[in-house]
Design a protein around this nucleic acid. Sequence first.
DNA 1: TGTACATCAGTGAACGCGCGTTCACTGATGTAC
DNA 2: TGTACATCAGTGAACGCGCGTTCACTGATGTAC
Lengths: 194, 194
Amino acid sequence: MRYPAGHKDRVREQIVRAASRRFRRRGGEGVAIADLMRDLKLTHGGFYRHFRGKEELFTEAFLASVDQARQRMITAADAAPPGRQLEAIITTYLSAGHCAKPDEGCPLAALTTEIARHPKGTRAAFDRILHTHAAAFARYMPGGTSAERERLAMVLFAGMAGALNLARAAADDELRRAILEQARSFYLDALSPA
Amino acid sequence: MRYPAGHKDRVREQIVRAASRRFRRRGGEGVAIADLMRDLKLTHGGFYRHFRGKEELFTEAFLASVDQARQRMITAADAAPPGRQLEAIITTYLSAGHCAKPDEGCPLAALTTEIARHPKGTRAAFDRILHTHAAAFARYMPGGTSAERERLAMVLFAGMAGALNLARAAADDELRRAILEQARSFYLDALSPA
DNA sequence: TGTACATCAGTGAACGCGCGTTCACTGATGTAC
DNA sequence: TGTACATCAGTGAACGCGCGTTCACTGATGTAC
């Protein structure tokens, strides 16, 4: 073969990684296959050696970015002192840094609205990753059964994603800052074991 | 003139109303001017007698739908018994009916993510309507100064919008129902004057 | 009162552009014999 | 070992389509005289 063993897999991974960033920054319809491939020093024709089409890439990139975001967030949580992991999750998620970098940030914030408009197959994959995601965070949540804590994690992340999106939409820096701060104190209060 | 007085204003209003529904259902890039005009038994060329372009329509339709959503929500709140208005806001917003009808529902849920990707002019208009919106709901919020209650209203609506979007993205009906229910009890608890 | 002209919301063909996808081709390497 | 052929990731022209926008035109009514 022309290329060394593993070459194709590496290229595919690069496409997925680059796509996951672009999708988060610009949304599904704001990303062109040709631009994406050009960034990787490739041409658009080769794309179809790796994916059936754009929808497949979107789904795969979304799933990959959820996994990546989860790992980062759990790393941040576990770096916190015992008993303060949930606090670390909330303050990290609702930080100015996360707000300023949608392309490296939580794909639930950047893409959930449009996933609601995607075909059912994509949304079924969404259900599964959402479950995986929430299950991983359930242990940081207060409350009853693990199923309850899992649902609470879903609602917490959904709520924080909503606040992050609102902050990102704000044109005024001071308004953005105020939204993030208010959201941090709201979710910290709401989930403190009072 | 060919058309009676007030005709142009009425047509413009119809365009804005139809657009606001389509934008909420399909997103900004999912709406074609020609389709929109065809629904109103008009042709696409006439659109430019009313608007400078699609961006202007998007902004105007968004603002109009926020006003409309606010009026509906305040009507629902004020129909509740005294002391239970906030509860009415939360249960109405997070109802299965609202979840099932994005085109008639809250534009903050349907469009905030993509507004974050719009030009600064659009986002400045967003800041103003957000302020108006939150100020109108501040009186239902618990807590200190009116500025604090206003920011709390922003965070509450952002959070509920996040939960609504998550529920809309879910492919499974049971998951959708569970997200809405968990979100209702979470926000009710968090804001009950405990 | 009648006639010529101006107005302007709406029409629909046409333009230009972006973009997803297809396809014949390339060329380096692997394999068969 | 050498030669002919197969493989296949990547190339880039081309196709088809949707869509935002422009523009010359229509025709009913208002206005000037």
